[in-house]
Computed example of a mutant assay.
Amino acid sequence: MIDIFKDYILQREELLARIAQELQLDKTRLERMETAYNTVADLLKKDSDFFNDLVIEIYAQGSTRTGTTVKPINDKDFDLDTVLHIYDPYYKHSPEDIYNALVKALEKDSYYKAIMEKKKRCVRLNYKSDFHMDILPACMPNSFEKEVIKIPEKALKNWSSGNPKGFSIWFLSAANTASEPLLRKNFDSLVKAQVETEKLPQEVYFKTPLQRATQLIKRYRDIYFQDKDYRVSSIVITTLLGQLYQGENSIFETIDNVVKRIKDNFSVAVNQGIRFKIYNPVNPEEDFTDSWTSSHYSAFYSFIADFHIKWQNLKFSFETSKEDYIKLFGEGIYKKALNEQIVAFSKSSNNVFTKASSLITTGAALTNVQGNINSNTGIKNESHHNFGGKY
């Protein structure tokens, strides 16, 4: 049976997967959001003024579609981005027409009228739960292309192009180039080594290193830009990771290598006196950095460089990297994931400190007259969830 605490690389990888799993939106929340946009779609299909004669679909885009969701920090609402895909050529309508038709259809319903907020080119529904939904109306570029969309510009006077379905296919294709992910390779051994009560979904070990890497970097982005301007967008992070990923088989290697490649590419562009540009991989005409100022570039590089420095400290041991884990992902998330890992694998380990920590965490620890922590005799120790010692 595997002793994960004797294999730092495997333990670190398993911990990173647990942290990422803890960060992502849970299945119940995702199902609630899916129900929300399907309900809106059903309402629009019954609209006699505009939509009932059209074939339409509402679907998620962004992180929900790529499997890289991250819970907002500080109890903020999750931003669910959706597309109202109208399967009709855009030249039959104006951007203003489809936007106004969406607003009008929702205003007919008292509930949606009460929670609706008009944005520049989309409509936001502010649900009382823990998310809001932005609905971006879109049409087809012609009668043949089913995935590419034409979307209103912010002034609602012109159209621009998009392809959220194509982007997610591109990203997931890149993610699946990993030949033998470390956790998937060790799946049977990891499962057998855990206590009987541990019920982790297979997704913890089977989600790709690229998806996990994206989640973890986005988490530090949220922490880093809490009190800073020019926040780097998720689409920029996701695109760069997808473009520079080379099939690494671990979360750690993916982040370590890709972040270095980002830094190197940025430095090359600066040294050559050219702008560092990030293009949409499924729509080369779209430059995600076209509106960036020098302040945007400075904030972007400072964030990447800062992340890279902290990440280097994770290479050696938990004794030297504990504070960096906390700075990168948050103290609560890190300690919860680490505590759960220790409890899960403590029975398969011969490490006395690990076993004692597991007993204390679960509230099953007793201290005998010799001062040794055990589960059989002595005075009961109070349970806690603030473990941070050696590991």
Rank of each mutant, 00 (worst) to 15 (best):
M1T: 13
I2H: 06
D3P: 15
I4Y: 04
I4D: 01
K6D: 15
D7H: 13
Y8K: 09
Q21M: 12
Q21W: 14
Q24M: 00
T35K: 15
Y37V: 08
F50P: 06
F51D: 13
E57S: 13
A60E: 08
A60Q: 04
Q61M: 04
G62D: 00
S63Y: 01
T66C: 02
V70Y: 05
D75P: 08
F78Y: 08
I86D: 07
D88V: 01
Y91N: 13
K92P: 08
H93D: 04
L102H: 05
V103R: 15
K104V: 08
K104T: 11
L106P: 00
Y111A: 02
K113Y: 12
K120Y: 00
F131D: 06
D134A: 05
E145S: 05
V148F: 04
P152A: 15
A155M: 11
G162S: 03
N163W: 03
A174N: 13
A178I: 03
R184W: 07
K185F: 01
K185H: 01
D188H: 09
S189E: 14
V191K: 14
Q194A: 10
A213G: 12
R219N: 00
R219K: 05
Y220P: 01
F225N: 06
F225H: 13
Q226F: 11
I237P: 11
L241K: 13
V258Y: 04
S267F: 09
I274V: 09
F276W: 05
S291F: 06
T293L: 14
S295H: 09
Y297H: 11
A299Q: 12
F300M: 03
I304M: 02
K310T: 01
Q312V: 07
S317V: 03
K327L: 05
F329Y: 08
K336C: 07
Q341F: 10
N351G: 07
S358P: 14
I360Y: 15
Q370L: 13
S375V: 13
N381A: 03
G388K: 05
G389V: 07
K390P: 15
